[in-house]
């Protein structure tokens, strides 16, 4: 069992998201995340899907997706160079002065080029906004959990795109 990534181009129509996600539940595939948004063409949407599956199941998932009339193209991202980011908001509560300082230190350490910021602050709380890889977000959440008593996490799911070198190969 491995974590794998697929990008899908689909018709931007009513019910397509339900059809794609329905495949995963109907066939008991282990869906991790699914994100969707429109592309430069307003009648085409792009999905980024992550699943945990063995080789045979993953092949089957790709074939099943390909067989759908509404699916225009399936791209297996698992073994090609990609850029991937996930948006993460994390509220940290119950902070005294020392806690706040630590939160800012953490943000500073994780930040690279503005991808981790504290964007809001209250009497005893702060709000992190992060655009990291899914893996790096996991690490940050683990750290916040270990350091602070109460946190609230909102994740957007990963969005991935082939790197330019691979899409023009």
């Amino acid at each position: 069992m491995k974590n794998r990534w697929i990008a899908l181009y689909v018709e931007n129509q009513v019910g397509v998201l339900a059809k794609v996600s329905g495949l995963f539940s109907a066939k008991s595939y282990n869906l991790q995340t699914l994100t969707v948004g429109t592309t430069e063409r307003e009648d085409v949407s792009r999905m980024t899907i992550s699943v945990t599956a063995d080789d045979a199941t993953f092949e089957q998932i790709k074939k099943q997706l390909n067989a759908m009339v509404e699916v225009i193209k399936v791209i297996d991202l698992t073994s090609i160079p990609i850029h991937m980011k996930e948006i993460l908001f994390a509220k940290v509560f119950g902070l005294d002065g020392e806690g706040k300082t630590e939160a800012f230190q953490i943000a500073e350490v994780f930040n690279q080029g503005g991808n981790v910021k504290i964007v809001d602050i209250g009497v005893d709380s702060v709000l992190f906004e992060c655009t990291l890889t899914e893996h790096k977000n996991n690490e940050l959440i683990a750290l916040l959990k270990s350091r602070f008593k109460k946190i609230e996490v909102t994740r957007g799911g990963a969005v991935a795109v082939e790197s330019i070198s691979s899409s023009y190969r």
Partner: peptide, 16 residues
């Protein structure tokens, strides 16, 4: 009905 039959049709659509 389109939603109900999604997994047992090759294609299903409502004319909007």
């Amino acid at each position: 009905i389109v939603g109900m039959t999604r997994s047992i049709t090759k294609y299903g659509v409502t004319v909007r």
